Amino acid sequence: MSDQEAKPSTEDLGDKKEGEYIKLKVIGQDSSEIHFKVKMTTHLKKLKESYCQRQGVPMNSLRFLFEGQRIADNHTPKELGMEEEDVIEVYQEQTGGHSTV
């Protein structure tokens, strides 16, 4: 019986991991920090939209990076291997420009 009891508790931990929340720091170019608590399985588009709304800027005017890689709207913290207190960097999107060649 103890084996049966242990097995469901392991499964519960697996389920808990799926719905687990982590805190992420979003740091802007001006070094301002906003902290977000997100589920591991939530699409990061929600975090990006919330950040842009707080900053009063359109979402397409900023780019969000985690460990140097651009974050897509459909990425989740779990897919990117994010952990508690990880940092997302935000930069002004640069458009235009010309070749110097």
Rank of each mutant, 00 (worst) to 15 (best):
L13T: 11
H98M: 09
Q92A: 10
G97D: 03
E89T: 13
K37V: 01
V26S: 14
K78F: 15
E49S: 14
S9K: 15
I22A: 03
G68P: 05
F36H: 02
D86G: 13
E11V: 11
K25E: 04
K7M: 02
I22R: 06
G56N: 09
D86S: 14
E5L: 10
E79C: 04
K46T: 07
L44A: 01
Q94L: 14
G97F: 06
Y51T: 04
Y21N: 09
G56R: 07
R54C: 09
K78Q: 08
K46P: 02
G19H: 10
L24T: 07
Q94N: 05
G81T: 00
V57A: 13
H98Y: 10
I34A: 04
S2W: 12
S9D: 15
D30N: 13
E20R: 14
Y91Q: 06
E84R: 13
N60W: 08
E93F: 15
L65Y: 15
M1N: 07
D15L: 10
D86M: 05
E83H: 05
G28Y: 00
G97A: 04
E18S: 11
Q4K: 09
K17T: 15
L62H: 11
T42V: 11
P77T: 02
D73W: 02
K23C: 06
E33Y: 10
S50Y: 04
G56Y: 04
G68Q: 12
E49L: 07
V26T: 08
H43R: 15
D15P: 12
H35Q: 10
S50G: 05
E49Q: 07
D73T: 04
K46G: 02
V90M: 06
S2L: 12
V57W: 09
L44Y: 05
T10P: 11
G28A: 15
E33R: 05
S2Y: 12
M1R: 08
P58M: 00
Q92L: 06
Q55L: 11
Y91T: 04
E20K: 13
K45W: 06
S32K: 15
E79K: 10
R63V: 06
V57L: 11
K45Q: 12
K37N: 05
E49D: 07
K45C: 07
M1I: 08
P58R: 08
P58N: 01
G19W: 08
G19F: 15
M59N: 11
C52S: 10
E89C: 00
